[in-house]
């Protein structure tokens, strides 16, 4: 089903691989690849795409936080964008890391952030062009902008207040992590926690349920509503907090709720279970 027939919110910020190929020569558009596997970008990427690495480019090298305004400014100037540049993010693992990068760019107020449906796998499976040449971009001037954590990011104290108000939470981890049967995501033992379970009142909708496993494309709005509204009990007017283990999988769900279903108040708790499950005295349900 093409994107226009899926019933998303009018400002859905999702573009097709076909749209991206049609806009490869658009000088006001920058394509950004963000992957987990560090070899993938160099092994071949969409022609003209630049790489944003979630560890080196988006995270503070010392503190557990994202880059500051100077770091973000330097990144934007390196990849040759201005505040008016339209960004198209894509990557491996059904855009897991690409959605995370898009969310961080949104924290800094970059408004024109799009996600390419299906990500890298879909682009390749359709036989679209790739290149191993590093994109040559002219450095730009990008004004320094303060990161605004208030609208789409949640911190521990805010989540505690949210729980006290019986606010809506979506836990996008696996059912085993949600139930407390497992203290970490399968294969990610160093990102575990001392306690298992979930934040009180949270509903469990694993992030990958939002995509078609065969194509990597997002499910239709009707299918997403069945997941988040019928199954998890959300309403579009709710104040919602999403979380996983470090905030990257939940950035994918944040995108689905915020941009595809048009929810106005969705925040990503990037401290997530590695903070909550390791903190002293915080309430936990199993």
């Amino acid at each position: 089903m093409i994107i226009e027939q899926r019933g998303y919110a009018p400002t859905h910020n999702l573009v097709s691989t076909e749209w991206v190929e049609d806009h490869l020569e658009d000088s006001n558009l920058r394509i950004i690849e963000s992957n987990e596997d560090p070899l993938l970008y160099v092994s071949g990427h969409i022609p003209g795409a630049v790489e944003v690495d979630w560890t080196r480019d988006l995270n503070d090298p010392l503190r557990r936080d994202y880059v500051d305004s100077a770091g973000f400014q330097a990144l934007c100037e390196r990849i040759g964008i201005t505040p008016d540049t339209t960004l198209v993010f894509y990557g491996d693992k059904s855009n897991w890391w690409a959605a995370y990068a898009l969310w961080v760019f949104s924290l800094f107020g970059h408004r024109k952030c799009l996600l390419m449906d299906g990500g890298r796998l879909k682009w390749e499976s359709e036989g679209r062009p790739t290149s191993r040449e590093s994109a040559t971009v002219a450095p730009t001037q990008y004004p320094r902008s303060e990161r605004d954590d208030s609208a789409i990011r949640a911190f521990r104290s805010q989540v505690l207040d949210h729980v006290a108000r019986s606010g809506k939470l979506i836990d996008v981890r696996s059912p085993q992590e949600f139930s407390g049967e497992r203290l970490h995501m399968a294969d990610y033992p160093n990102e575990g926690a001392l306690r298992g379970g979930h934040i009180p009142h949270a509903k469990n909708i694993p992030w990958a349920r939002a995509v078609n496993p065969n194509t990597g494309e997002f499910r239709s709005a009707e299918e997403l509503r069945a997941l988040y509204e019928e199954e998890a009990g959300l309403a579009s007017t709710d104040d919602v907090i999403v979380y996983c283990r470090i905030g990257e999988r939940s950035a994918h769900t944040w995108f689905a709720l915020k941009h595809l279903l048009g929810y106005q108040n969705v925040r990503n708790y990037d401290g997530s279970w590695t903070e909550w499950g390791n903190s002293v005295g915080l309430p936990i349900e199993r």
């Binding site: 596997d37 080196r56 990102e191």
Partner: peptide, 13 residues
């Protein structure tokens, strides 16, 4: 081989 910037999932694999 790959450096220390591997993600946890990639390094475990």
């Amino acid at each position: 081989i790959f450096g220390k910037e591997l993600s946890m999932g990639k390094s475990m694999g």
